[in-house]
Design a protein around this nucleic acid. Structure first.
Length: 465
RNA sequence: GGUGCCAUCGCCAAGUGGUAAGGCCGCAGCCUGCAAAGCUGCUAUCCCCGGUUCGAAUCCGGGUGGCACCUCCA
């Protein structure tokens, strides 16, 4: 496999530290609201990586955290007058159900920040002991970036002398303007955890370093994890700070490879809460099947930005529809045959997850399969190959696994389905009697349910339009 | 202001030195009672200007335009 390392800024051969085993850590969501498409993009991108690693025969330990203590959560708690725990458990389960709609596998381990407080305070203690961290008079603890010689080596952010010496007025006791909080002292009524340094809560960057050490660190190896991933906006300062903490606390680099996914843009601008242009995944899921959204998110290479628009989403739906129509044609046939197509598909994905290439291979596979199926004959072998290929597509790309009839009829209630079936029978009768005028009239009626009809030698089928 | 990414057909999008994949849309045809679905065919010289090279969308230099990070952010 080749992957693009966003810290080295080049595509390089992927070699895990342990043979046949990969440790993967991805920054997960802060659970204070529903997930938007951007969260979905990141989850889908790394789910794809997870699947492709598996397809290459690696055993993968995949950790994705849940940030369940944070200023935004506290804010939400105050606004809604709800307990923090209530908010975080609610949005965690919402996140899980949204992601499962997108066929995103659960990670191997999904630790919560609040469950790793001890690991975090241990790390802070190590940093305090080395004077790489310091406590201010109000009880907050900061990381001193000047103590880390390799600071900025991950993001390559340039900081000039002026900037380095510049003090942020609000925190006068900070040694360097770039110093970041490891521990925030709890004010009177705020939520807090007891620690050797007083009651408080951890800084955001700290949890990933602590969790990686707790769950993934291969002690005897050079790097804590093989791959560390997240959204491109996390490269700086989040990942830079994580790396600094780990480097200074336990004297090793946190990750061998860094991978960052691009954004979902709306009208050319990054989708974000603060810009007010985000929309919830759950709303998109009302209109489109989760697999359509997943397919759409995969049309653009994970590192590029994806400019959201419904025209392209529609185009993705049509491409996925075609795969499912092919699946209908071989319905009932199950097989597991190795094919050239599968090799090519994996090859494309092994090249830094080239999904555009992979998807184009699928289009060609669907088209050529249909072409052959259109010629007279039983095509028994071909059908087995098609079935195997679709199963493989589901395995590595995460779509195409549904029952094709259910896929096309999802969102239509039973009563309507029954009505449609009855009308189809009436139309069949009219057709047999060559009463095409009536048949067409009935078809118009059926179409008004928002479905389309197709007459085949096997009978008349309908699909949600 | 500092740092970085990007610019390929109406739309989406691969290709990163050897003569432009694929999809959507559109047009024509086959099939069909008519449709739908499916199939076939047709549609670009790669933002601009220089340079390197036998050869560049691909490398270098200079423009222009867009976006991101530097503050919470997938």
């Amino acid at each position: 496999m080749q992957i693009y390392d966003s810290s080295k800024k080049e595509k390089i051969k992927f070699i895990p530290q342990k043979e046949n085993h990969v440790s993967l850590y991805v920054c997960g969501p802060t659970v204070y609201d529903d997930a938007h498409l951007g969260h979905a993009r990141s989850a889908v991108a790394f789910d794809l990586l997870y699947r492709v690693l598996n397809a290459n025969g690696y055993e993968v330990t995949y950790v994705r955290n849940i940030t369940d203590i944070d200023d935004k959560i506290i804010k939400k708690s105050k606004e809604t007058n709800k307990d923090i725990k209530e908010i975080t458990s609610f949005y965690t389960s919402r996140y899980h159900s949204d992601m499962s709609r997108l066929n995103v596998y659960p990670p191997t381990i999904e630790p919560k920040a609040t469950s790793s407080i001890d690991a975090m305070t241990d790390m802070i203690q190590k940093l305090l002991d080395k004077d790489t961290a310091y406590q201010t008079s109000n009880g907050d603890i900061y990381f001193d970036i000047s103590k880390d010689e390799k600071y900025l080596s991950i993001s390559h952010k340039f900081q000039n002398e002026e900037e380095k010496q510049q003090r942020v007025e609000s925190v006068e006791e900070k040694r360097n303007s770039g110093d970041f909080a490891l521990w925030k002292n709890a004010k009177d009524d705020e939520i807090g955890f007891d620690s050797p340094f007083g009651r408080g809560r951890p800084g955001w960057h700290l949890e990933c370093s602590a969790m990686i050490e707790e769950y993934l660190d291969s002690k005897e190896k050079e790097f804590c994890v093989d791959i560390h991933g997240g959204g491109a906006d996390l490269l700086f300062p989040h990942h830079e700070n994580e790396a600094a903490q780990t480097r200074c606390a336990i004297n090793k680099e946190i990750a061998k490879y860094w991978m960052h996914n691009g954004f979902v843009n709306i009208n050319g601008e990054k989708m974000s809460k603060s810009l007010g242009n985000s929309f919830f995944l759950k709303d998109a899921l009302k209109e489109y099947d989760g697999e359509v959204l997943r397919f759409y998110l995969l049309t653009t290479h994970y590192r590029s930005n994806l400019n959201f628009n419904t025209q392209d989403l529609e185009s993705s739906k049509k491409r996925l529809d075609k795969l499912y129509r092919l699946k209908k044609r071989i319905f009932g046939i199950e097989a597991d045959i190795k094919t050239d197509f599968q090799t090519k598909l994996l090859q494309a994905l092994n090249d830094d997850l080239n999904t555009s290439k992979a998807l184009s291979l699928i289009d060609e596979f669907v088209s050529s399969s249909n072409e052959t199926l259109d010629t007279p004959g039983k095509h028994k072998n071909l059908k087995k190959e098609i079935s195997s290929n679709i199963n493989y597509i589901e395995k590595v790309l995460g779509f195409g696994g549904k029952n094709p009839y259910e896929y096309f009829q999802s969102g239509i209630d039973e009563e309507t389905k029954q009505k449609i079936q009855n009308l189809i029978k009436q139309r069949d009768t009219a057709k047999k009697e060559k009463n095409f005028e009536l048949a067409d009239k009935i078809r118009d009626e059926i179409l008004s349910f928002g479905v389309s009809l197709m007459d085949t030698p096997q009978g008349t089928f309908w699909e949600k339009a």
